[in-house]
């Protein structure tokens, strides 16, 4: 399955929705290199720490990563001496149908909103998280790309154990 069929310069709602669903599938199938390619060069993955957080710079976040940091994570997951991934974690997304919140064709920017349940598991432990994913998407060279993926966990300020993969 490919997530990335070519799209017109102006994507349809259906294409935006399919993209978001396909993105989660790449994570669940651990196709992390393909997943990384979905981000624009200046794309970001943001997981706020605060409820309704607006500032990623002077307020702590769980993750606020550019492509370099995401690449480090993806490479690390494959490493021979990555002991926290021996054995590897697995994860599972259940998405509600994404809603298209805004379409700014002039700015080439589209925002979707997706409630989801995310399960991460390793060894005997399985943890369920509930979250909302907000994707800011754009069309680059005929393909949809992620400018920002923001994941707000419903209990973002709780004390968590390891979260090793991507929501």
């Amino acid at each position: 399955m490919t997530v990335q069929g070519p799209v017109e310069q102006v994507p349809t709602d259906r294409e935006l929705i399919d993209f978001v669903v396909g993105e989660a599938r790449l994570i669940d199938q651990q196709r992390f290199e393909e997943w990384l390619d979905l981000f624009t060069d200046d794309g970001r993955y943001w997981m706020p720490l605060e409820w309704g957080q607006t500032d990623p710079r002077l307020t702590a976040s769980l993750m606020y990563e550019d492509k370099l940091l995401l690449k480090i994570r993806v490479e690390r997951l494959k490493g021979n001496r990555t002991f926290s991934q021996k054995p590897k974690s697995r994860c599972h997304h259940v998405l509600q149908t994404p809603q298209v919140d805004s379409r700014d064709e002039a700015a080439n920017e589209y925002v979707t909103w997706t409630p989801m349940h995310y399960v991460e598991t390793r060894l005997e432990e399985q943890t369920l998280y509930a979250a909302w994913a907000t994707h800011t998407l754009t069309v680059n060279d005929g393909k949809l790309r992620i400018k920002l993926k923001r994941v707000d966990i419903v209990n973002c300020d709780a004390a968590f154990g390891n979260i090793q993969l991507f929501m």
Binding site: M47, L58, T59, A60, S84, G161, N162, Q164
Partner: peptide, 25 residues
């Protein structure tokens, strides 16, 4: 403060890869 927060996020968060290394041990 920005640098301190980057450090905290990269080293001390439940999502931190350095944290994952240590917790495993």
């Amino acid at each position: 403060l920005e640098r301190t927060l980057v450090y905290n996020r990269l080293i001390n968060a439940p999502t931190s890869v350095v944290g994952h290394d240590d917790v495993e041990m």
